[in-house]
Design a protein around this nucleic acid. Structure first.
Lengths: 236, 236
DNA sequence: CCATGCCAGATTGTCAACAATCGACGATCA
DNA sequence: TGATCGTCGATTGTTGACAATCTGGCATGG
């Protein structure tokens, strides 16, 4: 199953999202952080945020707890909360774990790849290319994450998807910061060609190597940015 | 580094845990669930819990959010909260992801295994054997989890440890339920012998196979229990 | 007899006030 | 002059009351 419900519109049926205030707050706050409205390492106070969002501190705190769990915020009891700081160690952990999880995801999907999967992979890659060509670095982050996210969605493995979401948020924090610092962060236009080829090919071992290499390249770029930024006394 | 601070007593120095109420509540509630004081699938109401714990609903809610994130509770807005129900699909996901993560953890540690690591592995295995021999099924769950947890601690990979903690909680929920249902759930006395051998040996590929096999065996046992329990209309 | 609409109880969501704790500044004293 | 202790502002932690929403059952009408 699982493989069959990638983007079925379902005619708009299915359970509608129940909107609780904390969910909205979490979404807005996450967006604000990833948009760089507050820099990594910058402090956040509950009262200030509750005023800005015009909500009480109760739901705001619950939303912040969620972002803490996602690794975007750090808090120390009775003292304060701040946006997670950037660190090279973090980058290494994110990319190494990403490698392991994405390979595992492909192992799960491997025998079940169908036309739908192939088409969707191509579609998302073209969306990535389009945003790169348009020079829109902001959406190219989203499209690249969507491309890599496909295999996790297709796996139908809820726990695995959960782990991917956690990684994705942290990754987005670093990419967004990189984007703001250097203007252009996006991958080279052809950087995913061999990835796509291997993902649709017949050699699982080749894909393993390709993913490891792909991640290694990404990690090097991001690490370099972080160590450069922290040397300038930016964060940490 | 990382490999060096496995169980250093530090003479009782080091930062004392800052006790917030929600942390205590989360701990107690988690213990209650894993002890089976509330069965999987059973409903939990905030007001009832806040009365029993003699705290207000604020910190209680934050503690519950944490357990929700850990996969022990499930909530639907404005409607209710219940302990997570058991499902064979969940078991398959837990064990398959466990396999991937534990292999990854060993890959991280492989070249850094030292005497300390070897000693600690033996120590924890002996603790497991002791609890099995003592017929203490309750602590044998803890000791088995501690044994498998070593490689994650030794990896020094914070993100990986975080993922392991998430898996461990879910696993504990199933094992505890199994224990309560059948009295004796624990592994056979020699079930970790080949695991230890492979973990300390020189053949990483052999260890990969051993872990995969070890998990497969565990998954089969747990799956069988869950499908049996649900067929009796126990949960789900 | 079945479908529909409504009502009541229960449960979670939200709010504003109060308490506990922390970090830093400045006064005090050797 | 230097260190130490107390105090104060700021921040998070906690509480109890109130509002919004859901679920099930019941009355009503076809």
């Amino acid at each position: 199953m699982a493989l069959s419900d990638l983007s079925s519109p379902e005619l708009g049926l299915g359970p509608v999202p129940k909107a609780t205030l904390r969910a909205h707050i979490a979404e807005r706050l996450r967006a604000a952080i990833l948009a760089g409205d507050v820099a990594p390492g910058a402090p956040l106070t509950e009262t200030a945020l509750s005023t800005r969002f015009d909500v009480s501190r109760g739901p705001l705190r619950e939303a912040m707890r969620q972002l803490i769990e996602e690794g975007l915020l750090v808090t120390v009891p009775y003292t304060g909360t701040h946006v997670a700081a950037l660190s090279v160690e973090d980058v290494r952990e994110i990319y190494s774990l990403r490698t392991a999880l994405e390979i595992f995801a492909f192992e799960q999907v491997w025998e079940h790849r169908d036309d739908r999967f192939r088409r969707e992979l191509h579609r998302r890659n073209e969306a990535l290319l389009a945003s790169i060509d348009a020079g829109d670095d902001r959406t190219s982050i989203s499209t690249e994450l969507a491309l890599h996210g496909l295999v996790f969605e297709a796996s139908g493995h809820k726990l695995l998807q959960h782990a991917w979401h956690g990684l994705r948020g942290r990754l987005q924090l670093y990419w967004a910061a990189h984007h703001r610092a250097h203007g252009r962060r996006g991958p080279r236009r052809d950087s995913h060609d061999s990835y796509i080829r291997a993902a649709l090919g017949g050699d699982l071992d080749a894909l393993r190597l390709e993913i490891a290499d792909h991640m290694r390249r990404g990690a090097v770029v991001t690490e370099k940015f972080v160590s450069g930024a922290s040397r300038k006394g930016d964060t940490t």
